[in-house]
Design a protein around this nucleic acid. Structure first.
Lengths: 352, 352
DNA sequence: TTTAGCAATCTCTCATCAAGAGTGCTAGTA
DNA sequence: TACTAGCACTCTTGATGAGAGATTGCTAAA
């Protein structure tokens, strides 16, 4: 009826209606229903022929002889790529979200706000990768003495990210010494990328052991300890609304769900997947097995990268059943990525 | 056979064996099985009589006529209170945990380490309340200028908890002004409880608006803003290992599980419950409906308070099916609370 | 007080059956 | 040639019932 892999106009229309209906109801769709609901005015018999064709081409499958048809991954894929009509999203709802995203929040808070928002709006699980910026600028350093040769190092990075860690020293230092050391570090290195700073400090450690004064030596030593592999490229993500996925349990079985939740706590597979989305530009969708991870076999993942200073630094998205409302989810993910980017860049995006 | 609510020695023994077996297998236990497994050398008929008695007193119930018996909440309660023989816990396992609990971690990390540990060892969900200390000592203050009348305020509290927030000002201040203000605050208020500091600052705001110099005025204003209801008594908890609860799905139905997970994200009910455990001393157990929250009807909660400087400041525990191995869980919760207390107090506890 | 025995009760599993839904195929029709 | 009507066929679903198995409560005996 049609060349190898192609399906004609009518087939596409029917596929579209079928997938939409299946997404709504979750029940296999038969030719009769389709004949009634579609505008084409075709008889069920004709539709049966078309459906048989679609099945032969791998877009549909029947759970069993008399159960109507269900989209395959290939079917969903074609639907999403070529047939989808996106729903405009609710304006008031996401203005509210925009307000939550104050650029004064630290990155952690921004990320979890976004994650929560995604999960609430889509009623599925939202996840947001922590941004990994190429450059992390050192802004301020502060050392405070603790008990027992321990020092609390406080780093201010980029705009207003605060990190702290404890470093150990060979002897006890007093407040003044520490302040001087910190001052030295700030005046010398503030505004530079911490990778650079690290390298310079390492170099200084070698050279100036003999050359220079006590002060600089201490400063260099502490600085190097304080910056020793801090969580600059925090490879992690935040997930919200796993609850919603429990509704999957009915359709797909509890065991699969456990595997999925397991994957969430293991994190690595998911992270790997998100990483891929970072390099690929724009919104991306993994349907069912397309992801390549068994735990996600029954799920779809809609992702979009968000950016800082024009460069993509992280990925966010939504995980839900394969049978999700792509037409609604896609715009949400898209907008969320844009809003998060905007918040990160301290600016704001006009409502359109 | 026995006075109102009491059950005789033999009844207790049988109840114990029955509950233990039910906890192991999850299947209703019948008189025949009990006759075989018990050492008493009684016939199944005798045991039937005893069981009928226990059922009449409300310790057991039959799911249906021919299904053996299952403990009621009252049965579990009696079992836990009077019949339980605690299992000594694996030494090597928890030494490993002890190592993870470095006193140099900040409170957040300690709490989530503990939560993870609880969930891993018990294979159920672990939860740990964030500590709410009576006194939070101000240790250090630092102000950094940001763009646009905004200032990054960094607070160091207690030993080495670092908090930061952004405050807004009426004009732009330079670095020196800010340093002076911070210095003033540190020298005046460091070491005091932040509640006190707050009060004093509030007082100073009223009085000295006219009296004193620009410096102090700025300092007082900023200090008061920086300390304005920061998350000192962070009413929150950390949960880990919700995965494990998915195994509950089979026995109790997915819908209940959803309610439970919902309760976890709402947090308030759970927090309220944990709060109760804080006032009551020592380890505490809620079995099934005893908690009073519908979402926990099919669960048991084992909690223990942990303390700082001798006073209970938080609660940790484990949530799992009513049918959990109390004999193993209780010691774990108990020890974990002690170890967490020890870590908070910077000391360490000898293995015994 | 304990036990053996027995009828009664209830679940669980399996098989069977009828109803319903949907399909594929064939033969007719525009 | 494209579409449709009709029909036999297949498969699920739900109801029904029979039989096995498990356990109980009761009674009567030890």
């Amino acid at each position: 009826m049609s060349p190898d892999n192609a399906i004609n106009e009518r087939g596409q229309q029917l596929l579209k209606v079928l997938v939409e209906k299946y997404i709504r109801d979750g029940q296999p769709v038969g030719s009769k229903t389709l004949a009634e609901e579609t505008v084409l005015g075709l008889s069920s018999a004709t539709i049966r022929n078309v459906l048989a064709d679609l099945e032969a081409h791998g877009y549909l499958r029947s759970p069993h002889t008399s159960a109507g048809r269900v989209p395959t991954v290939k079917g969903y894929r074609f639907f999403v790529d070529s047939l989808l009509t996106l729903q405009p999203l609710d304006n008031t709802a996401f203005q509210q979200f925009q307000q939550q995203l104050s650029p004064d929040q630290n990155v952690q808070d921004l990320v979890s706000t976004a994650s929560n928002w995604l999960s609430e709006v889509t009623r599925m699980a939202g996840l947001v990768m922590l941004p990994k910026r190429e450059k992390i600028l050192l802004r301020h350093v502060e050392f405070l003495p603790l008990s027992d040769n321990r020092i609390l190092a406080i780093l201010v990075l980029n705009e207003h990210e605060v990190q702290n860690r404890i470093i150990y020293t060979d002897r006890v230092y007093n407040l003044v010494e520490l302040q001087q050391a910190a001052n030295f570090l700030v005046t010398t290195y503030a505004g530079q990328d911490i990778q650079q700073v690290r390298r310079q400090l390492a170099g200084a450690m070698q050279e100036e052991r003999t050359h220079l004064g006590q002060l600089m030596q201490t400063a260099v030593e502490f600085g190097s300890k304080a910056l020793a592999s801090p969580a600059d490229a925090a490879k992690d993500y935040v997930i919200a609304g796993q609850n919603h996925l429990l509704e999957l349990a009915g359709e797909t079985g509890v065991e699969r769900l456990r595997q999925l939740f397991e994957a969430f706590t293991q994190k690595q597979d998911i992270l790997h997947l998100l990483d891929q989305c970072l390099s690929a530009e724009g919104l991306q969708i993994f349907i069912g097995e397309e992801s390549g991870y068994a735990a996600l076999d029954e799920c779809s993942l809609v992702t979009a990268p968000y950016s800082f200073e024009g460069k993509p630094v992280g990925v966010l998205g939504v995980i839900g059943p394969t049978r999700m409302s792509y037409d609604k989810v896609i715009p949400v993910v898209d907008i969320t990525a844009k809003l998060l980017s905007a918040a990160l860049n301290q600016g704001y995006l006009p409502p359109d």
